[in-house]
Amino acid sequence: MSVGSRTGDFPHLPLHVILLIYVVVTLYPLLWVFTIGFSGQQGLMIVDIPANATFLDRLRAIMPWPAHFSFSNFTSVFTEQPFARWLLNSVIVATATTILGVFLACTAAYAFSRFRFPGRRAGLMSFLVSQMFPGTLMLIPLYIIIVQWLGLGSNFIGLILIYSITGIPFCVWMLKGYFDTIPRELEESALMDGASTATIFYRIVLPLAKPAVAVTALFSFMTAWNEFIQAATFMDKVNMYTAPVGLRFFVGGFSQQWGYFAAGAIVTAIPIVALFLFLQKYLVSGLTAGAVKG
């Protein structure tokens, strides 16, 4: 019985063909950036094309494989450019954002899920509405508050606060959805055994919600790791740049150092991709549990 399924009578070969075509679509831009990164050059071309190029010349030019392999872009981005420092800045900001963001979101989401109190619905709705605030509307006032009032310009703390707090609504909604699915009976029986709310929260609810917490952490980390408009606005000292600001520095304005950009982009993307592979089993369950509220 369990062997059969609704699509069991579809032949698998055409499905593989479709999937493989889409794999090419997905991977091509990534392979392309690898090619530029390992080419040892700063240009956009994979190979030089003669003036009267033939079909084969052009085919070679779109194959994502460098003409010569070289690590020079990687070594010089770390030795000649302050990229190591920028990467370290990003690590500091993203790690702190993750810790603070997860803490804020977990506590708030637990209260929204478990307690009924005046202002609960208003709070949840205001979180939802705040997702629609256009970033450009917020940028000028945020600049005034962070830089002029709190004096946190070119300071990690300012960026960490902004990232962890602007991420709260999404994280709270997702976590709340997951907390809602955890049966209350568990907590009630713990309560009967004399456990305090804090104990219940840390010992029972959080361990059960591990997948959702993992996704929240990943989301917070990605927000901080990938954001660049605010980082560019608030970090105006070169040695306080985060990696995204630094990467734009390579190919923004009059600068066209595509090789440095590609090498830096590969290095910057690796931690995120690694985290994804590590946490992807939680990804689906965390996201859908938050979304499916029945």
């Binding site: 804020l104 506590t107 209260a111 109190f117 917020m138 707090i165």
Partner: peptide, 29 residues
């Protein structure tokens, strides 16, 4: 509802300072 407000306070305070206050300022602007 002391517990509920204690749990939500950090997040709500942060949101107030860095999301809703800038928004209001933007509205005035």
């Amino acid at each position: 509802h002391r517990q509920a407000y204690t749990y939500t306070f950090p997040a709500l305070f942060g949101m107030l300072l860095l999301v809703f206050l800038p928004f209001l300022y933007g509205v005035v602007l």
